[in-house]
Design a protein around this nucleic acid. Structure first.
Length: 571
RNA sequence: CGGGCCGUAGCGCAGCUUGGUAGCGCGCUUGACUGGGGGUCAAGAGGUCGCGGGUUCGAAUCCCGCCGGCCCGACCA
């Protein structure tokens, strides 16, 4: 392609509304333009990258036996009602009505429709199947942000596995796990596979693929020593054994005027204790039940863990009014000792603790000498707290690291949630109908694009890996008016085209500096610079974007050298 | 959905406090010089000041309403 006739609108300045590096660079480089909040147009450069990422996804899916489909994005609301998600999901699902007034949903994901198609499977002998498509998804995100990282309209590679039993699902899941690792590696980064919560997707196991990045919004805990990694919604950790008094002691009420927070109580002169000796009492509503969620004073609740373990579709913090009605005191003086009208759920870290301090359910008073096992009627002990950096890995006890990541892929063991609801059954060996065991597996294509930029850029711009670069090489013509220079450049360009390299020739009438800056901004992995001085000496400059390494190459060998470098890196 | 900030030329911004009919840099067009890291000079083009209403002789500027965007939080298969 010729730069002079291409639409590559690069910008000198960062767009004012961009925060994330990938957002700034993809806009400045002329890859994307915003249309509205969370909706972006892909320009030619952006589309080229997207197509390459899709190509790798397709390749990896076919490697594990995937068959490609293309399912609609306009779905009958009826179908989503049958799976239950019409009511479960809320505002994130785009809904509309057609001219006859029928409910229609815009695809957030395609479990329902793939399951309907799978309804034509008749026999266990037809299983397993792995089906996929690469299709637009629409989600009315509450807060689109960070450019192309979190949007309302995007492309997803999603696949669905259909198996006769859990063992089959396990195998399909493993195949995807490996395919995803290869996929992200080919896109240019090592994704961290983490245990995750399945959320409203249903199913009992899910793994997310993450890229460590400040631009991300998911926190994960990861152990460098043994490889354990989990989303903070799910991660657990070990703590040093507490040093509690031997004897249980007796409960004493004491006055704590003006003490409303854990830290105020820790600093309270007349009976205050450190946060780790306090019991934090949070009040939640789940359906018609009031839950007391008890944690150590210095710990934070991982709300998703609570949600996952109470089997409610929704839990929310109780209002101050509800709290007062249930416990007779305001936040700051709450506790679970002697409370019978609420369900107390206690974090594992409090099990067996003695000599603790907690609220007395009377404003301005606390209790000391509390023995958790003796004094609190716990419905259950569960892991509810959020892991902190430096705590012990649950597998090997080495210190665990907590950091921010971008979620680029997510795979789920769905089980029979959708097949049972939508009647996708096969006959087993005995001739009895059994629901198909399903898995679903997604990769965000544009998000992957942005993630690569987050992982691979410098002050000058993007540095694409060869596999997904919009062009693999650029021939920069320093002075197109100089006939010798321009003929030399054109020859090299033609040779690269003939060699099957995606090559761009910068034949614009621009200053050299402008061309260099632009080539670096849009991130072309290799550059051949053809200028009058070099041509005079029979050489051109060959430069690698990622480290700036450059050398002179004979004109006759230039195309070959570049082609070899590119081909060596393609995978 | 709560809190904060912002909509003026393609991009980045000033002007608004104290009303008088819009300006700067970059980019763009034409010409000349220049040609290995965003060059110089000259001449130009380009704006319903987000939208609607109100106040006023007069509104980018003041008032009311709406729309849109960004950030923080809640949310997120």
């Amino acid at each position: 392609m010729r730069w002079s006739t291409s639409f590559i609108p690069t910008l000198r300045d960062d767009p004012a509304d961009a925060e994330a590096v990938s957002h700034k660079l993809l806009v400045r480089g002329g890859f994307v333009r915003q249309l509205m909040a969370g909706v972006y147009s892909l320009l030619p450069l952006g589309l080229r990258v997207k197509a390459k990422i899709e190509g790798i996804a397709r390749d990896e899916m076919k490697r594990i036996g995937g068959q490609e489909f293309l399912l609609p994005i306009l779905h009958p609301g009826e179908l989503w009602k049958r799976s239950g998600r019409w009511d479960q999901i809320g505002d994130e699902l785009f809904r509309l009505q057609d001219r006859r007034g029928s409910d229609v949903a815009l695809a957030m994901t395609h479990e329902e429709v793939f399951t309907v198609v799978a309804g034509e499977l008749r026999s266990y002998k037809q299983l397993p199947q792995v089906w996929f498509h690469i299709q637009t998804k629409l989600r009315d995100e509450a807060r689109p942000k960070s450019g192309i990282l979190r949007v309302r309209e995007f492309t997803m590679k999603d696949s669905y596995s259909f198996d006769r039993d859990d063992a089959g699902l396990d195998a399909a899941f493993d195949n995807h796990l490996n395919a995803y690792r290869r996929f992200f590696r080919r896109c240019g980064f090592e994704a961290i596979a983490v245990e995750a919560s399945s959320g409203v997707m249903g199913g009992n196991q899910s793994v997310e693929f993450m890229l460590a990045s400040e631009a991300g919004e998911d926190w994960i805990a990861s152990c460098a020593a043994c490889g354990y990694a989990a989303n903070l919604e799910k991660a657990s950790s070990t703590l040093p054994a507490p040093e509690d008094p031997e004897s249980a002691g007796v409960i004493e009420k004491f006055a704590t005027p003006d003490v409303h927070t854990i830290s105020e109580l820790a600093n309270f002169a007349d009976g205050g204790v450190p946060a780790e000796r306090q019991i934090k009492t949070l009040v939640y509503r789940a359906g018609n039940e009031t839950l007391l969620v008890l944690l150590r004073g210095d710990h934070t609740l991982a709300e998703q863990k609570l949600l996952d373990s109470v089997e409610a579709t929704e839990v929310r913090p109780a209002s101050e009014k509800e709290i007062r009605a249930a416990l007779g005191a305001s936040p700051g003086s709450l506790g679970a000792v002697g409370v019978t009208n609420c369900i107390a759920i206690v974090d594992e870290a409090l099990r067996g603790r003695r000599g603790m301090v907690t609220g007395a359910n009377e404003d301005g008073y606390h209790l000391r000498g509390v023995d958790v096992d003796r004094d609190i009627e716990a419905r259950a002990f569960m892991d509810l707290r959020e892991v902190s950096d430096g705590e012990g890995c649950p597998v090997c006890e080495a210190p665990i690291a907590v950091f921010k990541t971008i979620e680029v892929g997510h795979i789920f063991k769905l089980g029979t949630k959708y097949s049972a609801a939508l009647g996708a059954k096969v006959l087993d060996e005995n001739g009895s109908p059994v629901p198909i065991v399903m898995g679903s597996y997604g990769i965000g294509i544009e998000r992957t694009m942005a993630a690569v930029v987050e992982a691979s850029h410098d002050e000058a711009g993007i540095s694409w890996p060869v596999n997904i670069a919009p062009f693999e090489a650029v021939v920069t013509v320093l002075n197109p008016k100089d006939v010798k220079v321009s003929e030399t450049a054109e020859h090299i360009y033609e040779d690269l085209v003939a060699a099957g390299i995606d090559v761009l020739i910068d034949d614009r009438h621009e200053r050299p500096g402008v061309k260099f800056k632009d080539a670096e901004l849009i991130g072309i992995p290799y550059r051949i610079t053809v200028g009058p001085k070099g041509v005079e000496n029979g050489v051109v400059e060959f430069m690698r974007r990622r480290d700036g390494e450059s050398r002179e190459v004979e004109i006759a060998r230039a195309a070959e050298t570049a082609a070899e470098a590119v081909l060596e890196e393609r995978s």
